[in-house]
């Protein structure tokens, strides 16, 4: 019976470790292949985090109980910190113009958190969506992007 449970634990741990490694590899592939910073952040922040969580779980079912608790705590830290990093990097990427706007279906931040140097859409014929109220960004810490109105967003 002891031998059987050990075998089952080995199999579960091996499956979890291999799945986690495959997810890490897919995340790295997306990080290499995707076109702009936000897409790469997407691949890295989701697939990679899932891979690390699966690897932590696969290690946690295989070690004694206090170490398993520490590994699960590490997984909990990953779940807390990965969205924070993703949000900060994505915000800085948007504000520094690292977003390829041709890959977006919609852009809900266009009047509120505009990049200081818009990419290549300065052709002057903004079609009615140049709303002059840029009052959604009064959070004090944005430097030089307070005038996000009047950018032509027709594509």
């Amino acid at each position: 019976m002891k031998d059987l449970s050990e075998t089952v634990t080995d199999i579960v741990s091996a499956v979890l470790l291999l799945t986690g490694a495959v997810f890490c590899l897919l995340g790295a592939l997306g990080l290499l292949r995707f076109p702009d910073t936000v897409s790469r952040l997407h691949a890295s922040s989701k697939a990679q985090t899932l891979g690390v969580l699966l690897a932590l779980l696969g290690a946690a079912v295989h070690v004694p109980l206090p170490y398993a608790g520490l590994l699960l705590l590490t997984g909990l830290f990953q779940l807390f910190t990965a969205p924070v990093t993703g949000q900060v990097v994505g915000r800085v990427a948007y504000r520094t113009g690292a977003v390829d706007h041709r890959t977006l279906f919609t852009d809900e931040l266009v009047g509120q958190l505009a990049p200081p140097n818009p990419p290549d859409t300065e052709n002057g014929d903004d079609d009615g969506n140049g709303d002059g109220d840029d009052d959604g960004n009064g959070d004090g810490d944005d430097d030089g992007n307070g005038s996000g109105a009047g950018r032509g967003r027709e594509r």
């Binding site: 986690g20 891979g51 690390v52 690897a55 932590l56 696969g58 590994l71």
Partner: peptide, 8 residues
């Protein structure tokens, strides 16, 4: 993840 594999 690699250290997890080593631990396990």
């Amino acid at each position: 993840a690699g250290a997890c594999v080593g631990v396990a």
